[in-house]
C-alpha cells in the first residue's frame, strides 16, 4: 500500500534527520531516491532548490512534494504526518524528562557524537548535487565536452561569494539561477 510506504518512509526521515535543516537532506535522498525511486536525482535536486526558496522546513517541503507526485494530496498529507509523528513523540518525551530532571546531558552527548557524521552525510548529498550539476545525468567523466563549464563557473563564483561576504543563500541561488538562465538561453553554451 503506497500510503503506508510513504508514511513509514517519512517517519524514518523524521526520526533520522537529526540536527535540523540540511541534516534532513541525506536521509531524504536515501529514502526517496536510492531506496524507493520516487524521484530521480534531478527531481530531488529541484526539490531541494524549491525547498530553499520557499518558507518551511526542507523535510516538510519534500514530504509534500514527494507525497503529491506519488499519491496526490492524500499522499502529501500522509507523508507530512509521517515526518511529524517521530518529532512529536520524542520532543514530548524529552520535555517530560527535562521538566522532571532538568538534565539533558546524555542527549547532548549523543548529539555531539553524531555531529561529525551528520557533516559527512550532508557533504555526500551536496556532492551528488554538485556532480549532477557539473556532469549531468551520466555521472563523472573527464572528457572536456562532458563537463558543464557554466555550472563550474557558477558554482565557483557562488562559493567564493558565500565564503567572502556571507550573504543570504536565497540571494546567491537566485543570482546563479538568473545568470544561468541568461547564459543557457541566450548563448550557444546552453546546448
Amino acid at each position: 500500500m503506497i500510503y503506508l510506504e510513504l508514511l513509514w518512509s517519512f517517519m524514518q526521515i523524521g526520526l533520522f534527520s537529526i540536527g535540523g535543516g540540511y541534516a534532513a537532506m541525506p536521509v531524504i535522498q536515501s529514502q526517496v531516491v536510492d531506496l524507493h525511486h520516487w524521484l530521480t536525482l534531478e527531481e530531488f535536486a529541484d526539490v531541494i532548490t524549491i525547498a530553499e526558496m520557499t518558507p518551511g522546513p526542507i523535510a516538510i517541503n519534500s514530504a509534500t512534494f514527494v507525497g503529491i507526485q506519488v499519491a496526490g494530496i492524500p499522499g502529501a498529507i500522509v507523508s507530512t504526518l509521517g515526518c511529524v509523528i517521530p518529532s512529536c513523540i520524542i520532543v514530548l518525551t524529552l520535555a517530560f524528562f527535562y521538566y522532571k530532571y532538568k538534565n539533558l546531558r546524555m542527549v547532548q552527548g549523543v548529539l555531539e557524537g553524531l555531529r561529525p557524521a551528520i557533516v559527512a552525510l550532508i557533504a555526500s548529498a551536496g556532492l551528488s548535487i554538485l556532480i549532477l550539476s557539473v556532469f549531468g545525468n551520466n555521472g563523472i567523466s573527464w572528457a572536456i565536452h562532458q563537463i558543464n563549464w557554466v555550472s563550474v563557473a557558477l558554482f565557483g563564483a557562488a562559493l567564493f561569494v558565500l565564503r567572502k561576504w556571507k550573504p543570504s543563500p536565497i540571494v546567491v541561488m537566485l543570482g546563479c539561477g538568473v545568470v544561468g538562465m541568461l547564459v543557457y538561453q541566450l548563448t550557444p553554451l546552453g546546448g
Binding site: 535536486a45 554538485l130 557539473v134 555550472s151 563550474v152 546552453g190
Partner: peptide, 15 residues
C-alpha cells in the same frame, strides 16, 4: 534553465 543555474548555486550553498 533557471533551475539548472540554481542547482549550481544550491550545490555551493551546501558545500
Amino acid at each position: 534553465a533557471l533551475l539548472r543555474g540554481m542547482q549550481a548555486g544550491v550545490a555551493a550553498v551546501i558545500i
